[in-house]
């Protein structure tokens, strides 16, 4: 890739991003514009994938909403993603947690805790 493109992309990337990993339970604060007003909406779930690099980096969050699995892909550097808050770190051995999609009930939202594994 051309140096100029990497430079232009670097200009747009967010300088401070909270550290989070695949398997973490997170709250994603997204900016929602309704008419003239802007408010924050929270999407909470497990990070099941992180992909891409630089400006094109994105992550997928999965949650169970009224018994239905919902996944949302956020571009990491989008201005619409206001904040990412890690509520519970998880320990996983895979980069992609697509296996959660096949799970039902409590298992579907359970990833091992860091503490349990380290003990």
């Amino acid at each position: 890739m051309s140096n100029i493109i990497s430079k232009l992309e670097a200009e747009q990337t967010k300088k401070e991003i909270a550290s989070f990993h695949v398997g973490d339970t997170v709250k994603v604060h997204t900016r929602v514009i309704e008419g003239d007003k802007e408010r924050i909406q929270i999407f909470a779930g497990i990070v099941i994938a992180r992909k891409g690099t630089s400006l094109n980096e994105a992550f997928t969050v999965r949650k169970i909403s009224y018994g239905e699995g919902v996944e949302r892909v956020f571009p990491l550097h989008s201005p619409k993603v206001a904040k990412i808050e890690v509520t519970k770190p998880g320990r996983v051995r895979r980069a992609r947690l697509h296996y959660l999609r096949g799970r039902q009930g409590k298992d579907a939202m359970t990833v091992k805790d860091v503490v349990q594994n380290d003990a």
Binding site: S2, I5, L8, E9, R31, L55, P75, S78, P79
Partner: peptide, 22 residues
């Protein structure tokens, strides 16, 4: 033509752009 990238607007919309060296 140098390549393509994206640019975010103030509203947070992503626009696909081509970078042209002139």
């Amino acid at each position: 033509k140098l390549g393509m990238m994206k640019v975010y607007t103030d509203k947070g919309e992503a626009i696909a752009v081509t970078v042209v060296d002139v």
